[in-house]
Amino acid sequence: MSATGFGVEAVDYATALPALRAIREAVFVREQGVPAELELDALDPLCDHVLARDGDGQPIGTGRLTPQRRIGRMAVLPQWRGRGVGSALLEALIERARVHHWRSLSLHAQVDAIDFYLRHGFLPEGPRFEEAGIEHQTMSRVVDGPNPVGDRETALAAMLGLVASAGRLLCVYSRELDPGLLDRPGLMTAFRRFAIAGGELRILLQDPGPPQREQAPLIALSQRLPSAIAFRVIEEPVDRDFAGAYAVNDRGGWYTRTLGHRFEGETRLDAPGRARQLRAGFREVWERARPCTEFRALGL
């Protein structure tokens, strides 16, 4: 049993069925109104199942991994939500995928749980859809490698995951403050929440002119939170020759792009070695760059 007051383990389906059923019926059938005949299916006996128990051995959460390499039936009793049970269940299922030597995983996330899965490196795929009367989003991730980012919406998801999983520091290297990405309302909300919670956002720019002329919303946010958000401008020729862009946090997460004016790239939230390299390179350029006084001069 962990210091959090609960433990998670892989379980035999037949032996653990009463506990699995009790949790899933409480959450899916009684709480969310999913028909009982849809909640139980023929896949159950073929899946890997994990079970969370409290200090007294009572079941409090569960999840499964299907032969189709899909995570599902993630459920935590209401009184245990927000205490790390869901994250522990998800990590246990990812570990089961490692045991099977599976390269990638997918899941159907209820829309209100998308942010939770973003924090664990899953990215959205395709449009939303309805399943058992509830709106869902397909999401996927590579188990132990970078996830490809191919378009603006996936780039937004990558950034949201990066901010949500950051501890106290988030570094962004951008050419012109990435219009269409760093100005998205959802990301602005995430930046603001991160800064208010005590995080530090450092942003390196090659050209402050375009975002200044366009009055990028991140500039106004930095004026409201100057102790948390800082800009510097890259001037050294050796630094300006860098054609890419990237963002990196202090907990092993990063999103890199070979070409700074495009969104295509790779992201991963659990690669501390690569994150340390990116932060070290960012720090060197940051120390050579000048403070962006242009942004300070703008009115609110």
Rank of each mutant, 00 (worst) to 15 (best):
M1Y: 15
S2K: 06
G5W: 13
E9D: 15
A10E: 07
D12W: 03
Y13K: 05
A14M: 08
A14E: 13
I23V: 09
D41K: 01
A42Q: 08
D44Y: 14
L46H: 15
L46D: 10
C47T: 08
C47A: 05
A52E: 10
R53A: 15
G55L: 10
I60M: 11
G61C: 13
P67V: 08
G72D: 13
M74G: 08
L77Q: 06
P78V: 05
Q79Y: 08
Q79F: 10
S87V: 08
R98Y: 10
W102I: 10
R103K: 09
R103Y: 11
S104D: 14
L105H: 04
S106W: 02
S106D: 03
D115H: 04
F116S: 01
H120Q: 12
G121T: 09
R128L: 00
F129H: 05
E131D: 12
G133V: 13
I134N: 03
E135R: 11
H136M: 09
T138S: 08
D144H: 01
N147C: 06
P148C: 07
G150D: 06
E153T: 12
A155M: 14
L156Q: 14
L156N: 05
A157L: 07
M159H: 13
L162W: 02
A164Q: 10
A164F: 07
L169T: 01
L170N: 09
C171N: 06
Y173P: 00
Y173I: 00
D178G: 02
G180Q: 15
R184V: 04
M188H: 02
I196G: 02
G198N: 03
E200C: 06
R202Y: 00
P210A: 08
R213Q: 04
A216V: 01
A216Y: 14
A220G: 09
A220N: 02
P226R: 14
S227R: 03
A228W: 06
A228H: 11
F231V: 03
V233F: 09
V238Q: 07
D239Y: 14
F242E: 10
V248T: 14
W254G: 11
H261P: 05
R262N: 14
F263P: 11
R268E: 08
R274T: 14
R279C: 02
G281T: 09
R283S: 12
P291R: 06
C292H: 04
T293F: 09
R296H: 07
G299F: 03
G299Q: 02
